[in-house]
C-alpha cells in the first residue's frame, strides 16, 4: 500500500522536479555571473503565473501559448532592472544586493496586487490524463515537465554551442580573466541577467500548468526558499547542477510527504518543508569548503 503510494508520489515528484529544476536555473545563473543572490526570485515566478493567467482568462488561449510571452516579459523585466538597478550594484556589498533584490520582489508583488487583486485564482485546462495502476497523471503535468526539459536543453545548447554562451561560461569562471580575453563583460552581465529572469518567469508558466490553482501575488515567497535549497544542492553557480538538484528535490519532497503522513499527530506538509531546510543546512555543514571553493 504505502509503497504504491510512495511510487505514485515519486512519479509526481520527478515530474515536478523538472519544473523546480528549470525554475532554479535562473537563480544559479544570476549568482554565477553577477555573484548576487536574487532574494526576489520567487516573485518573478509569480509574474510568470500571472502572465499565464492573463493569457488564459483574458485572451482565452491555451497555457503553453504563455511560454513565449513569459520569456519576452521576463527578459524585458530583466533588461529593465539590470540597466536601472543591478548594473550599479555589480561590486557592491552583500547587504545592498540582498536588500535591493528583495525590494524588487516586493515591488513586483505590489504592482501585480494592484493590477489583479490579492485573491487566489486559478484556471482550468483539461487535456486528458495518463492512468497508471498506482496513480493518475494529468497530461498538463507531463507537458509541463517535458517543456521544462526542452527549455533546459535549449539553454544547454546555447551555453555550449554558441559564442556568446561560451562567453557567459567564461564570465562565470573568472570575470576579470574573461574581460582580459576581450569578452564584453558588461554586455554579458546584462544578457545573462535578462535570460535568467526570462527563464524564471517562464518557469512560472510551467508551474501553473503543474498546479493551476493558488495563483496570487504572494505565491512567490515559498519558491524563493525552495530555489535556495535547490540551488545550494546543485552547487549554486551551475544552472545544470540546479536542474538536476531540482529533480532530486522533487523526489525528496514528494517522497518525504508520504512518509511523514504516516506519523500520527503531525502536519506532514510543514514537516516536509522543514526537512528541505534542514537538508540545506546539513549540506552547508558537510560541504562548506567544497561549496565555498577557492576564494
Amino acid at each position: 500500500m504505502i509503497l504504491e503510494l510512495l511510487a505514485g508520489n515519486l512519479i509526481h515528484g520527478l515530474l515536478l522536479g523538472c519544473v523546480y529544476g528549470l525554475s532554479t536555473m535562473g537563480l544559479s545563473l544570476i549568482f554565477g555571473v553577477l555573484k548576487v543572490i536574487n532574494v526576489g526570485h520567487g516573485p518573478f515566478i509569480m509574474v510568470g503565473a500571472f502572465v499565464t493567467l492573463a493569457m488564459v482568462t483574458i485572451f482565452g488561449t491555451a497555457p503553453p501559448v504563455a511560454i513565449p510571452a513569459a520569456l519576452v516579459v521576463g527578459m524585458a523585466l530583466g533588461f529593465a532592472f539590470f540597466y536601472t538597478v543591478m548594473r550599479r550594484l555589480i561590486k557592491a556589498p552583500e547587504f545592498t544586493t540582498l536588500l535591493v533584490t528583495f525590494a524588487i520582489g516586493i515591488l513586483l508583488q505590489e504592482v501585480v496586487k494592484f493590477t489583479f487583486g490579492a485573491e487566489y485564482r486559478g484556471y482550468n485546462w483539461e487535456v486528458g490524463k495518463i492512468i497508471l495502476t498506482i496513480t493518475t497523471i494529468p497530461m498538463t503535468k507531463v507537458y509541463a515537465s517535458i517543456g521544462s526539459i526542452i527549455i533546459a536543453l535549449l539553454l544547454y545548447l546555447w551555453f555550449n554551442k554558441t559564442r556568446i554562451g561560451t562567453a557567459v561560461r567564461a564570465v562565470v569562471e573568472d570575470s576579470e580573466g574573461a574581460r582580459v580575453c576581450g569578452v564584453n563583460v558588461d554586455r554579458i552581465y546584462a544578457l545573462s541577467f535578462a535570460i535568467a529572469i526570462g527563464l524564471t518567469v517562464m518557469s512560472g508558466v510551467f508551474l501553473t500548468m503543474f498546479i493551476p490553482v493558488g495563483i496570487n501575488p504572494y505565491m512567490g515567497g515559498v519558491y524563493t526558499l525552495k530555489a535556495f535549497v535547490i540551488a545550494v544542492l546543485g552547487g549554486l553557480t551551475s544552472p545544470y547542477g540546479a536542474f538536476f538538484a531540482g529533480l532530486i528535490f522533487g523526489l525528496i519532497e514528494n517522497g518525504a510527504y508520504v512518509l511523514f503522513a504516516q506519523i500520527p499527530g503531525v502536519a506532514p506538509f510543514s514537516l516536509t518543508v522543514s526537512l528541505a531546510f534542514w537538508m540545506l543546512f546539513l549540506l552547508l555543514l558537510i560541504k562548506p569548503t567544497g561549496l565555498l571553493g577557492a576564494k
Binding site: A267, L271, S274
Partner: peptide, 10 residues
Amino acid sequence: EGLRHLIEGA
C-alpha cells in the same frame, strides 16, 4: 524557515 515549519509540522 526550518524552525518555523518544524514548529508547525511537529
